[in-house]
């Protein structure tokens, strides 16, 4: 089958939640194992084997936890924007399942990034909160998540809830680059160009590799968590259908 027609059939299949539910089973397990391995190895590597930073000493190790959370949180918001576009253009029900599944984890990871950022700031700058370019854009990301969450809570009708949050996710995603640039620009204006902790200096490989492993581990965890939430959402939304009944009866 030519490449484009297999994409078309895949696209068509994605339309039915049932196919996604059955297909996603092994993916969840795969992502789960990958997350476990990567995060385990990454943590041990970052804590025990990565060299301390010449300026900050060991508190630098918090970066291996802070950066993955912030990166994955932003990718989650971007994927909600894409899901919103899919929902608006192709009216695919699965897209709303994706948005509903991404939302809680996105909010939690953003809050986590802010927390670990603060814990990192204390030994480095002596304050729990530093109005730094990265922290502000992460805070804005948290408000963008909260905006969608509040909007979904305010609307009862499931179909309208889906379209409204898709619209807000799309607009938010379009604005993220502008917000990021303006906050970075604002930060460099206020902070004389000293070594800013959050600028990624050219790191030697022994520092960079554990970060890469931790980031991949966080992405794997996000994949595992979001797909299993989507499966739960599908069970809730399709609870009256017979295939769900059979799947449940056989412990699928």
């Amino acid at each position: 089958m030519s490449f484009t027609s297999s994409i078309k059939t895949l696209w068509h299949k994605l339309g039915s939640p049932r196919w996604f539910y059955q297909m996603s089973g092994p993916w969840v397990i795969g992502f789960g194992i990958a997350a476990l391995v990567l995060l385990g190895v990454g943590a041990v590597w970052a804590l025990g084997f990565a060299p301390p930073d010449y300026q900050q000493g060991n508190s630098f190790r918090i970066m291996y936890v802070h950066v993955p959370a912030a990166m994955v949180a932003q990718s989650i918001y971007m994927s909600m924007g894409v899901a919103g576009l899919v929902l608006f253009v192709w009216r695919m029900k699965l897209a709303d399942v994706a948005i509903a599944a991404c939302l809680p984890l996105g909010m939690v990871l953003t809050a986590l990034a802010l927390f670990s950022g603060g814990v990192w700031g204390k030994p480095t700058w002596g304050t729990w909160w530093e109005w730094d370019g990265r922290t502000v854009s992460t805070l804005v990301l948290l408000f963008l998540f909260i905006g969608i969450y509040a909007l979904r809570e305010a609307i009862e009708d499931a179909g309208l809830k889906a379209r409204a949050s898709a619209l807000v996710a799309m607009i938010g995603t379009i604005n993220i680059p502008i917000i990021k640039y303006s906050v970075e620009w604002w930060h460099t204006l206020h902070q004389p160009a000293s070594f800013t902790l959050t600028e990624k200096p050219a790191m030697p490989p022994e520092m960079y590799l554990p970060l890469l492993v931790m980031v991949l581990g966080m992405y794997a965890f996000a994949g595992h968590n979001i797909i299993s939430r989507m499966r739960n959402q599908i069970l809730v939304r399709e609870s009256r259908t017979h295939w769900v009944r059979e799947a449940m009866a056989t412990g699928g």
């Binding site: 943590a43 804590l47 000493g57 060991n58 508190s59 190790r61 918090i62 936890v65 802070h66 959370a69 986590l112 927390f115 670990s116 814990v119 990192w120 204390k122 030994p123």
Partner: peptide, 13 residues
């Protein structure tokens, strides 16, 4: 000396 902060961040995560 930074043990509190490092373990706090990793623990929370």
């Amino acid at each position: 000396g930074h043990g509190l902060y490092v373990w706090l961040a990793y623990g929370a995560t």
